[in-house]
Design a protein around this nucleic acid. Sequence first.
DNA 1: CTTTTGACGCGTA
DNA 2: CTACGCGCCAAAA
Length: 113
Amino acid sequence: MRMKKTKSPDSGATLYSRIYAAVRKIPKGRVSTYGRIARLVKAPGPRVVGYAMAALPEGSSVPWQRVVNHKGEISLRKGGSGEIRQRRLLEAEGVEFKLRGRINLKIYGWPDP
DNA sequence: CTTTTGACGCGTA
DNA sequence: CTACGCGCCAAAA
């Protein structure tokens, strides 16, 4: 990790750390969106959240799978087979998928109201 | 050092 | 519902 000194001094935690922490807070059987987390951690942009997820290694303690885009569907690079893997994990948690692999954020969206 | 791309969100048409 | 554009920042080339 690069300890780069950005002009935004955080309260000790780095931006990525906050993102990971927020994702960890997502309850089981729920999903959140990049923008939602971006605001929770005060990220400058939702892209940074997605980028942080992409940088996550497998086996990380971060349930990045619970993070979906504002459309309610799984987003990952190139729409490869990873999408299927994610979906399977979410279904195992109790998340129900609509057609086209979309999730009803109205129900599974987090945080609630 | 510069340029391009990217697990995005949202307003507006 | 789709389509287009803008904004935001970081990492890779």
